[in-house]
Design a protein around this nucleic acid. Structure first.
Lengths: 312, 312
DNA sequence: TATCTTTGTGTAGTTAACTACCTAATTATG
DNA sequence: CATAATTAGGTAGTTAACTACACAAAGATA
């Protein structure tokens, strides 16, 4: 038997090994059930135990209790209904709801199954108790689930996020991110389409600047400084992909613009926004913007608040 | 958030929780790759690392090294070939073999991917090192893989295995198990079909006895004592399902027959077998049977050895 | 009270592992 | 040296989870 390569990968192989182990366990469980001609599959176990314990339970309640997506529960319970182990009733109060219960056959089988499960339980106990396996698993779950490991990784990665000012590259990303943002919060006005399709003409050539947030080489946010009056700039076209929340991409873009404004000694910096976008407004306030009166002549319908950055 | 039902199940829920955790990790990994537009999927990771490390490797070598079934590896590597991350060459010495290697693009991507993986590695390290997670996983793997948990469970269950003598029930199992056994080791002779189809006429009514091994209510082995001369019995029709190896089912059936023979003070007990069935012959010797000459008139072609149990 | 939002269930499509079986090439054996 | 057994790669079918979306009922809100 060859050396196990995955083990040599250390923590990088951890996930794979966990999957391999759990797959193997589920597999051997299924094989055992099949060999013993028990008409049950490993994934039915939780549902069985839950209904034994609680009686009438709906599909989403089951999904919630056993920590699965509800379509998975539907698949499992449909099989169990087909095998006459459980039956479904309409809920008397909520006609959308199905409540599931063990049938008589299900309760009878329960005795048989519990005998096997009890043997499994005591075997696991005997082998795993010295390892404090349950306690360990609990801690693992906390590390990965509660802390949201994906988010955690992203935050680590975001330390390498860079804000770049570039007027020539990434125009396609500029368009895509802004349209995505507009579609999500408002709708695309004609003037948006015009400007976003041709940032060179409408922003750069008018003395403006384009900024991008880049994560791992990928553009994940944009903002533009657009010259309005001589030396007075509007901070606009702020758009951040919604795939990466919590990385403070917006904040970093703002700060880059403010630094740029100060460094180039612009005469003023303001922005137009909408009071419905509370998190954004809060961010603007946080970095120093203060509310000023809205003029009548803004080109966008969606703006109902104007803020400006007091410059020393 | 409701109390987690699976956790209340203790060791019974261990497998489910392990699966849930590993599924969640793989899922969030895939999502992260997708969000970052990396054209890689979680299961490609091991293959990537292996080829980076070793260069030219064949499909079965990969499967062996990362602990997966070879069709899974084929699926993964086909996707990687389609993405031009690896390429396949015929082995120069063995024309059945394909050797896989990273392409130039694959090597280039490797840099990019390793940056992410390194962040993952250090994040995992930071979170898991205090838990001694790798060490723990190693121990878990040993408990479940090396010890073959299914086998372990079966052995626990086999303590409840019972050998029953019954001439009326289970004739269908008697037929099925013996035919299964014959098809596996020899072929079904006409006389087998005759006897097995009607054990009442050919065994019971001739003064014989049928024995069954029952595990968890299911018949998993048979044997018969068939009266030949007056009070002299042949031990025959020994058949054990090949689903449950290592439970000493054959041994227990043998011992039940021997006890029965002694209790009823039979005049003799012998059996016919074939020297090719070494494990069986060894078992017969172990419980006390000794070889005697083979007569010319046995009804079965497959027998080339006769053994008898010396009775006090 | 009319409309919007949330909730409960269901379907379709994706991903990923497995076993069982197949063919062809290589190696072992009588 | 012919034939049998093993090995390498591949296909088909099974199981099981997920997300995304659809639709209807119930609840919230203007």
């Amino acid at each position: 038997m060859e050396r196990d390569f995955i083990k040599d990968l250390g923590y990088l192989g951890f996930t794979m090994r966990l999957k391999r182990l759990s797959d193997a366990l589920i597999h051997s469980g299924r094989k055992l059930y099949k060999d013993l001609d028990l008409e049950i599959e490993p994934n039915m176990f939780s549902v069985f135990k839950l209904l034994e314990d609680r009686g009438s339970t709906s599909i989403t309640e089951i999904a919630e209790a056993i920590g699965m997506a509800h379509p998975s529960v539907i698949a499992i319970t449909n099989k169990m209904i087909a095998k006459d182990l459980i039956y479904a009733d309409k809920d008397s109060e909520d006609s959308r709801k199905k409540v599931l219960n063990l049938t008589q056959k299900g309760r009878d089988k329960s005795t048989e199954y519990n005998a096997i499960w009890e043997i499994g339980n005591s075997a696991m106990h005997k082998e795993l108790n010295d390892l404090n396996a349950l306690e360990f698993l609990e801690q693992l779950e906390q590390v990965f689930e509660k802390k949201d490991f994906r988010q955690y990784l992203l935050k680590e990665m975001s330390q390498d996020m860079e804000i770049v000012q570039d007027n020539d590259l990434y125009h396609a990303d500029f368009y895509a991110l802004n349209i995505e943002w507009l579609k999500k919060y408002f709708y695309v006005e004609d003037y948006d389409e015009t400007v976003l399709s041709n940032p060179k003409k409408y922003i750069v050539d008018e003395g403006g600047y384009l900024f991008y947030a880049k994560l791992n080489g990928k553009v994940v946010g944009t903002v533009a400084l657009i010259q309005r009056d001589n030396g007075v700039y509007e901070l606009s076209k702020m758009a951040v992909t919604d795939k990466f929340q919590g990385l403070r991409i917006g904040y970093k873009l703002m700060m880059a613009c403010i630094d740029f404004t100060k460094k180039h000694k612009f005469n003023g910096l303001f922005l137009d926004s909408n009071t419905a976008l509370e998190p954004a407004i809060n961010l603007y306030r946080k970095v120093g913007f203060v509310e000023i009166p809205v003029p009548k002549d803004t080109p966008y319908e969606r703006c109902n608040i104007r803020m400006e950055l007091p410059l020393d």
